[in-house]
Design a protein around this nucleic acid. Structure first.
Lengths: 239, 239
DNA sequence: AAATCAAAAAGTGGATACAATTATACTTAT
DNA sequence: ATAAGTATAATTGTATCCACTTTTTGATTT
């Protein structure tokens, strides 16, 4: 049962640990602020602490965990401000990506893009699948820019907010995804209007961001008033 | 003489190794494509291979070295296309940074910025010092955006092309740095014109990029013709 | 002389062992 | 009762050791 999954895994043990931890964080099993015990993780995977440490170091560089010297690693907890910052960065970078991709897109590419947009629309009701196809749509466009570093960076930023996006979605059952925006984008793509497509992409991403950010601000406010006067209730009780 | 510099270094051995390797790469002592021998580095620093390995893993995540499983680490060698990609990313991100900083800047901040611009201009002739002060000017503006992740990412991108910038500078003795552009930026900052300041910053960064990129393309062409027909010269000689 | 293969050397990845640091629990004093 | 201090446990950081992979070298064959 706890049969060592290392056996089936191809590649180095470090990669195995990296993939495992990353999945755990992105899927929300390890939640923000939580300490990561390397010894436990190592035992779970049936490996030593060393490859786990290296995986954590890598995840730290990518922003998913935060290592403090001699004090261990914690899963990075993002504030609403952090999430805003990340979306802002993604917005300008993905704007750049469309701008670069536009002159390189063949008619075939545009057809494929249109296809993906339709596939996305088809599952508008199921938020999880829609998100996944939405990501694929965006990713396809990024890849067509012929800029691997840009594409990777955008993917990294997208991943780092993923758990928060999922929380938001979970708390807003069936928010009827706004797919129509992509029609506007497709139109600008066909017209090969670089400037307007870039601008449109920026606005599109930030409009998606607002929901998540407001949700997180709401949570933070709730938590703050709760933490600021924890004595209020008990004082009343005592009195 | 080879007195173990670890003694004087505060912090973990891993940090020591990281700082050391980073300096070596950024200063150009380790040049692009070169293999890094962890055992040698470890001995030089008077530490074991383990912290060196972790430092390399981190540098890999940051793009300064490339680790291939079972085949060691090499200093990342960037092509002209890579450098263009990085400058493009920096341009849009730093555009975002000014836009965010503008509404937050106090009169004092603007004075300080102006001060830095003057200090930069004062050493226009000495390219090394000018570069350094130029970076500080840009960094100050980034910090004022109140976006730590954005600031860090921009710094990372700037660092990754630093060796190439230095090569370019070295091969173009005293290119009479174009400081005047910053006057235009300062004007837009004072007017608090977010949109135009963002656009200006983008263009400013890309104009700085062109020199480096052309230089690298030139080098690549030279290398390519040299490699494509290495017999050409010797054939002529033989004939 | 060039190509192929085998064996050795070098190098990388991972595990265990040990040292140093931080966190926790317990005591003691105010 | 609370706070400070100390002892102990837990965790983190580093080094050494071993196994496995890649690279190099040299011998052999065509």
């Amino acid at each position: 049962m706890t049969m060592n999954s290392r056996q089936r895994f191809l590649g180095t043990t470090q990669q195995h640990a990296y993939v495992h931890l990353r999945e755990m964080i992105l899927s929300g099993v390890y939640t923000g602020g939580q300490k990561v015990n390397p010894a436990k993780v190592a035992e779970e995977l049936g490996v030593s602490r060393m490859p786990v440490r290296e995986a954590l170091r890598q995840l730290d560089s990518e922003g998913l965990v935060t290592i403090r010297p001699n004090r261990g690693a914690v899963v990075t907890a993002l504030t609403a401000a952090d999430v805003l910052e990340i979306f802002d960065m993604r917005a300008v970078l993905e704007g750049l990506a469309v701008r670069c991709a536009l002159p390189l897109l063949t008619g075939e590419d545009i057809e494929e893009l249109e296809d993906r947009r339709r596939r996305m629309d088809r599952v508008r009701a199921e938020s999880k699948r829609w998100i996944s196809r939405h990501d694929e749509f965006h990713d396809f466009l990024c890849v067509q820019s012929g800029r691997p570093r840009l594409t990777a960076e955008i993917a990294r930023l997208r991943a780092s907010v993923q758990p928060y996006l999922q929380m938001y979605i979970a708390s807003h059952p069936s928010p009827e995804m706004t797919g129509f925006e992509h029609d506007g984008l497709m139109e600008l793509v066909r017209e090969r209007d670089e400037a307007r497509a870039e601008e449109f992409m920026r606005e599109h991403i930030m409009s998606a961001a607002h929901g998540v950010i407001e949700y997180l601000e709401h949570l933070e406010n709730e938590r703050d008033v709760g933490a600021a006067m924890p004595a209020a209730g008990s004082t009343a009780e005592a009195a």
